[in-house]
Structure formats: C-alpha cells, structure tokens
C-alpha cells in the first residue's frame, strides 16, 4: 500500500521544494495545516526557513506543536524544522519542542554567517544515511546550529563541529536541505521513505 507522507505547512516552510523532491521519488505528499490532517499520516516532514520565533508561534497557534510531539511514526525536521525540535534556541531566546536535548546556538567567530553552500557530512548514525558515502556534500543555509551531542546522527564542520543531523526514537532532524542536495539528498529522502 502506498504510504501517506504529510508536509507540515505553517507559513515558514520551503514547501514547494520538499514536495517537488518527494515527487521526483514517486511520492505525492499532501500538506497538513492542522493536527487533524496528521492523524492518517504514516510520516511527517516538518520543513522550515526564516526566523525561529514567528515559526514557533505559528506552530502553536495551529496546535501543531503538540501534534508533532505526540506523533508516534517517523517525523523528519528539515533546517529550521530540526532546530525547532530542540529543547531551546538562542534565536529569539525561546523554548522548542524538546524532542532533541540541547540548545540551538548562533555561529560565531571569524566565519561568514549564514553558513551557505555545500559542505561535507560524516560520522553517520541511523537509517537515514544508509548507503551515503562519508564526506558526501549536502546543501546548507543557516545561521544557527545544534551542537554535537549523543543524539547527533551526522556531523559537519564550519568553525565548529556541529550536528548536521539528529536522531532520537522516531524523530529525525536534518540541518541541511536534502531536497536541494542533489543525488545525496535524494538518497537520504529515499531512506526516510523506506523506514
């Protein structure tokens, strides 16, 4: 039976890109604007770009914060989506969904911010990286990051070594954009589909 993947639409997402990428893999993903629309979903993708604070407010207004937290099947947060899944964030000094322990920090030092472009990822853990070569390149665009911790599922280096991916139970997060990361990104999305 074909699975149902829902992309959460809350006014802070690169929805079209994610939907297109899944389409290239043969999945016609629907959009979910409310918790009710998530009930029948087999999997959720939680994208996000822009600022953390208004994104979190939109999520709460729609009741989607609780719905994501209580979802029992695989959830994939992308970019800001992954960052909102952490316990807290320095951006807007706010609490997140608490699915990944740790605080989202801003890049500092003499590096350019945002971290923009293709960077190599390695130290993989978990099903999303099955078949991915360590050192493969993924496309990043972000100014904040989740520091390396136990839940880290891939690392990347930019001034510091940070979490390019996180994984705990049914919750997955990718700091880079798999939907914009060429063949490597397609493989990672395919792995998510096949979990």
């Amino acid at each position: 039976m074909k699975q149902s993947i829902k992309i959460i639409s809350y006014g802070a997402g690169n929805i079209a890109s994610v939907k297109n990428a899944l389409g290239r893999l043969g999945i016609d993903a629907g959009l979910a604007y409310s918790p009710a629309e998530l009930e029948t979903a087999d999997k959720i993708i939680f994208p996000g770009v822009g600022h953390a604070k208004p994104a979190m407010e939109n999520l709460k207004k729609a009741g989607l914060d609780t719905a994501i937290r209580e979802f029992k099947r695989p959830v994939l947060g992308i970019c800001l989506g992954m960052q909102l899944m952490a316990a807290s964030s320095e951006e807007g000094n706010m609490e997140g969904l608490g699915l990944f322990p740790g605080t989202i920090k801003r890049f500092s030092g003499s590096i350019k911010v945002p971290h923009m472009g293709w960077n190599s990822i390695r130290e993989f853990r978990g099903p999303l990286f099955r078949g991915v070569e360590p050192g493969s390149h993924a496309y990043f665009v972000h100014s904040y990051y989740l520091p390396r911790a136990d839940i880290t599922a891939a690392t990347c280096e930019y001034g510091t070594i940070f979490s390019a991916a996180a994984w705990r139970d049914n919750f997955f997060g990718l700091q880079f954009h798999p939907e914009k990361s060429g063949a490597t990104g397609n493989l990672i999305l395919k792995n998510f589909i096949e979990i």
């Binding site: 890109s17 990428a21 290239r24 496309y139 939907e179 914009k180 990361s181």
Partner: peptide, 8 residues
C-alpha cells in the same frame, strides 16, 4: 525548473 532540479 524547481520540479526538475534538486539543487538550489
């Protein structure tokens, strides 16, 4: 273009 390519 967005639906055809997987780069930014």
């Amino acid at each position: 273009v967005a639906s055809a390519v997987s780069i930014p």
